[in-house]
Design a binder for these strands. Sequence first.
DNA 1: TTGTATGCGTTATCAA
DNA 2: TTGATAACGCATACAA
Lengths: 337, 337
Amino acid sequence: MAPLPTLEDVASRAGVSTATVSRCLNSPEKVVDHTREKVMSAVDELGYTPHFGGRALASRTTNTAGAVIPTMDNAIFACALQAFQKELASAGMTLLVASSDYSPSHEFEQICTLVERGADGLLLIGADRPKTSYDYLDKRGIPYVVAWTNHSDQAACCVGFDNRLAAKRMAEHVIAHGHRNIAMISGITEGNDRAAERVHGVRDALADAEINPDAFKVVEVNYSLDAAGRAFDKLITTSPPPTAVVCGNDVLAAGAVTRAKARGLRVPKDISIVGFDDIELASVIEPKLTTVHVPHRRMGVAAAKCLLDMRELERTIPGREFMTEIIERESLGPVNR
Amino acid sequence: MAPLPTLEDVASRAGVSTATVSRCLNSPEKVVDHTREKVMSAVDELGYTPHFGGRALASRTTNTAGAVIPTMDNAIFACALQAFQKELASAGMTLLVASSDYSPSHEFEQICTLVERGADGLLLIGADRPKTSYDYLDKRGIPYVVAWTNHSDQAACCVGFDNRLAAKRMAEHVIAHGHRNIAMISGITEGNDRAAERVHGVRDALADAEINPDAFKVVEVNYSLDAAGRAFDKLITTSPPPTAVVCGNDVLAAGAVTRAKARGLRVPKDISIVGFDDIELASVIEPKLTTVHVPHRRMGVAAAKCLLDMRELERTIPGREFMTEIIERESLGPVNR
DNA sequence: TTGTATGCGTTATCAA
DNA sequence: TTGATAACGCATACAA
């Protein structure tokens, strides 16, 4: 286990100074061809890799962006992140990913970890987090983009969409199919503004349609198929049972559909179920989910661009709002009672 | 944008030396109560966070493990990683994740990135990669665990299962249902030993059953629903069409099932389709997939333990082999022709 | 174009 | 128990 080669090792092997080696690596155009070749071959022979800590310390920058997402377990974040990362990579930046498990306190820890590691900028999901977290970043002048939402209390750069409006439109769509007894399976809204706003949106639509809000049943659960199934059981056994179930995302909708079928219910003949996100799962399950399409890849790209801009300009910039779209498939039908 | 507070800022504010502050943070027991309190409140007031680069430079360690997975887009890696991370966290280590997109050269880049950033150990998926990658790690004495397989050319610590045997058992199971005209939809085997071994395993079973290996059709595709659908189209239009399709993983199987249904085929009455991995998707799709269960969470935990041990012992240790299990659900039926 | 010298924030050694 | 001080590996201002 030989000690790792350092700049100095490379320098002495190539017969130049450490400064020259450093230049070869960081701004090759500032050094003459034949010395560069000498240096580069020394680098190869030694298998030299610059020490990140040393570099970070000396240059006060890391070319690193961080992202804290709620979970790696939902395809929608994976997709957005992939796009985010690609865009960053083309600007020479690396991405560090951490997950918060939908817990604000855990999120704060992850933010700290990423910042300690020298993240030059951060991608955060949703706006609902303790002021502490924002202060922490603002105090350090670390740029961040808040994705998946179109507004925040802070003057943050938001790259996202109007969750409330999107959910309202979907609920209106359900209502237009004749449903008036509508229930909802939502993610846990505590600390999750996207989930909370989707519930609000549905309420908005009910209010507009003059449907008694007290009869609107919402069950909050973790984002898992099983939990959604249990929530469905609970809802379907109330009286009168809902004729349509609006779900906070496609995973919940898939869980509900699976449970409905297991109970011998036909979807959408006996009960309508709609989702949100439009992940792949939505078109694999039978019946295919009627859902809200969210342009996650485009959000990822836009978020990266914003972060890059903010880094260059050294100030916050306005974000970007995306539109969602209802994807009509098979799981929503006319009311049948 | 005030400059970040440093150890020295904290020290002067608390009226102690930087050494004492450092001790407070790293081995609090070595400093007397009342000084520690002074220091800690100075830390809080200043919102001090240690600079990772400085720390890495001085201590020659980062308490960081890295993982390079093929893709974040498959739930199976997400699950394993979650478990891996949790186990590491309980030992005070942080996890850095990168994805290789199933490309060995891209994987090498990611390995370098993680090592440069000071990863104290690495989790890699599969054993099939250029010797360069192994040499790079060995030369630097960085411990790594090779997961998802039970053997490697190098003397690496493998935490995984026998892909070939598992696939063979599944194929035997299919054959036991009377199928003799079996096709396969596989992931790209180039640079992916798990995929390659699963194909081998199926071949093994065919050979044992004295089925003509020349008639065995394999289509290699990217791991996506659409690609699997197209592969299914290709296979089903050969003559004679297969009565069973073995798939390299559940995503491929889901794509095949979806496509089969779209063509008006009943699964498994008209055609049997089996998967591999047992991800959630497998029990959501209709019919539910008969598949091979892989204990990804347990692998994740075991991999973390191995890495931790290797780090402590400063040498490679033997890995651990897991058993897989066939999960009988609905997508495999008796041959019907 | 290249080399010299300094400092980045932290840990660790050694004295006090 | 605490403090002074020397590394750690690299980038960069400045000098040559």
